[in-house]
């Protein structure tokens, strides 16, 4: 059920390039001359892609299409989620808000899950994607404990830790991840953060973006525009009604 046919994949890539090109015209004026050393450092970094995702919550409708596409793409067992959408309700009538927070593995630059693995079954690839080899993983669940985002789970079928890998099998074929492909609102942008001309780099540069739990020092590669970071457990916010529905088996955030 995985493959979109080659033609439409190619045309999608073409489309992304064009979209990037158009945006580049707009951003061109903002280009600043950099010292030579900095330029050298950048061009060296540019040789390798660093995949990332930007989720524009001004566009998200909370439709769960991403969650469903992900479930189907990987045949994720019942009760587990690689990708999910949280609803955040807050305020007291009539001053209320309801927003959505799609979640997935943050493919952290400093992944705490990788450093605790006793079997070297999970690692960060050169392109920034954190992967798990289910044939090496012993299922000790240390990485599940160590992830501050609760992005990992134990796959009961394989007995190994499992999580979002940005649809590595699709990305390797030049396709975008399944959740990005299916998003009805183009709220998800996937691309190479090391390529200054990519759409994601430009969007990240030209918008106020945030990451989740920045204070953990994990340096996530999943960015959000307009995310509501409210959490019911924040002591200062307890006077106000906040309810988070995670749409996961664990109703509460980890």
């Amino acid at each position: 059920m995985v493959d979109v046919n080659e033609d439409s994949a190619a045309s999608r890539r073409e489309f992304l390039k064009q979209a990037g090109g158009t945006a580049a015209l707009g951003a061109g004026a903002a280009t600043v001359a950099l010292p030579r050393a900095a330029q050298a450092a950048i061009s060296e970094a540019e040789t390798k892609p660093r995949y990332g995702m930007l989720i524009d919550l001004r566009r998200c409708t909370g439709c769960h299409a991403c969650s469903v596409a992900c479930k189907a793409e990987f045949d994720v067992p019942l009760g587990s989620t690689r990708s999910w959408v949280e609803y955040v309700e807050k305020g007291n009538y009539p001053t209320v808000s309801r927003s959505f927070l799609p979640r997935l593995c943050n493919q952290c630059t400093n992944p705490p899950c990788v450093s605790v693995c006793p079997a070297d079954a999970t690692w960060k690839r050169d392109d920034g994607i954190v992967v798990v080899d289910p044939d090496i993983c012993i299922g000790c669940k240390y990485c599940i404990q160590a992830c501050p985002y609760d992005a990992r789970f134990l796959n009961p079928v394989t007995g190994a830790a499992d999580k979002c890998d940005f649809c590595l099998h699709r990305v390797e074929q030049g396709l975008v991840p399944s959740c990005v492909n299916t998003c009805i609102a183009d709220a998800r942008i996937f691309g190479d953060l090391n390529d200054p001309d990519s759409k994601i780099s430009k969007m990240v540069a030209s918008n106020p973006v945030t990451v989740l739990r920045q204070e953990m020092g994990t340096e996530p590669n999943v960015y959000y525009i307009n995310a509501d970071h409210s959490d019911p457990r924040q002591p200062g916010q307890r006077h106000e009604y906040i309810r988070v529905d995670t749409h996961r088996r664990n109703q509460e955030r980890a």
């Binding site: 693995c117 006793p118 299922g139 000790c140 190994a160």
Partner: peptide
Amino acid sequence: LGSFQAGNWLRFLNLYKVIN
């Protein structure tokens, strides 16, 4: 261990293949 419960009874020996 998840691997043991999934029927890979000796998978835990992977612990002895590395020191990190």
